[in-house]
Amino acid sequence: MPSEYPRVPVETLYSFMRDVFIGCGVPVDDAATCADVLITSDRRGIESHGIGRLKLYFDRIRKGIQQPTTNFEIIRETPTTAVVDGHHGMGQVIGVRSMELAIAKAQKFGMGSVAVRNSTHFGIAGYYPLMAIKAGMIGMAFTNARPSIAPTFGVQPMLGTNPIAFGAPTDEDCPFLFDGATSITQRGKFEVLARKGQPARPGWAINDRGETITDAEQVLQGFARDAAALLPLGGAGEDLAGYKGYDLATIVEILSASLQQGKFLWDLSGIAPDGKTQPNYLGHFFMAIQIEAFCPLADFKHSTGEIIRQLRASRKAPGQNRIFTAGEKEYYSEIETAKTGIAIVPNLQKDILEMQQALHLDQYKFPF
């Protein structure tokens, strides 16, 4: 990110986001949870899901699309599983409590799985496997989302970006953490590009005639009008196996809707049949695996560490200096942002100042 953008210290940004949530009616402890999920995204260099998404929650709470107070209801439960209704509360709170529940079950019985319905956007999916990693476990998280991906040979946005997140501890400070959309790039990337006034790459998105489009704002506006769609991993058609991304997104949709009997596909658009806004009815699925039920944790960490070290040490392509493994770049970003703070682009500065003024958070003095 260009050095001319002003930077805000991590702690200041975290405190501001927490206070915005509190100002919107979110209970103090829940506000801290929501802010922690968002600041983790910024710290890890994921611009699309941190402070850049705060205005989304601010607007949705004010419009009544999601509830600031979270009613976390367990509606079905076994020793190793649970089904949760989030009642359109704060997605981050629902996500954290669900993963805590999965971890607790895994600690007692070896595995724990929690399916969620009627939730809202829960931030970066990778936050939740990190919780399991800290508990010495393997963690997984899945979520469906607003329609944006077209199925292979289609042009209509039907599936969400439907990320898959998987994390495992290693014998290094950096765990293995994969967190990726099942589209070529996530919806949030287009939000970032639109804020910066930059185009998307050809082949990421198409219009309703199947033609590639690169105007980020056009893509974002086109989702709700059936006029634009993201392409699944692999791209259009079958030549580069785009059907694999399409099928992976469908797997996530099943895990995030069928087990919990939640809504799916176009019912997640946030638009009612009469054209008015409505809740997004999102679903999630969380899993925690107790490693000690299979082998000693230290042995697992060593084996996993050896896997990623051997991958990094393999022969490099011409002109390439090194090979990375999942979560490594984000780990280094956390170290860097702790020193430098978070860069804030001009359009995001406007959103921050608007929320600050609306909630009278005059104690914050931003460098813009």
Rank of each mutant, 00 (worst) to 15 (best):
F178I: 11
S113I: 14
G262Y: 00
I254D: 00
H302D: 06
T152Q: 05
V20N: 00
F153Q: 10
Y246S: 06
G237F: 05
G123S: 04
P273Q: 12
G123F: 01
A141N: 07
A194E: 05
K63D: 14
V84W: 02
A141D: 05
S314M: 09
T120S: 15
V116S: 06
A132Q: 08
G110S: 09
L54H: 00
M137D: 04
K55N: 11
S98L: 10
I164K: 00
I51M: 10
F109N: 14
A293D: 12
P6A: 02
R18L: 05
R7Y: 02
I22Q: 13
A141Q: 07
G319S: 06
I39M: 03
V28A: 15
I74E: 05
G188A: 01
L220M: 08
T80C: 13
I184Y: 01
E100Y: 08
D85L: 02
A288P: 06
N280W: 12
Q260N: 14
L359Y: 02
P163V: 05
I164W: 00
E211V: 09
R44D: 00
I352R: 02
R18A: 06
S15R: 15
G270I: 05
T78W: 11
D208M: 06
T69Q: 14
E211T: 07
A224N: 08
E253P: 03
L177T: 03
E238L: 06
V10H: 03
L297I: 13
T143K: 10
F300A: 01
K105L: 08
A102I: 07
E306W: 10
Q320I: 15
A249C: 09
A82N: 08
W204T: 06
Q261N: 10
G197W: 12
Q320D: 12
A358Q: 10
K276E: 13
L56Q: 11
I254K: 03
G245D: 09
V28L: 09
N347M: 14
L311R: 12
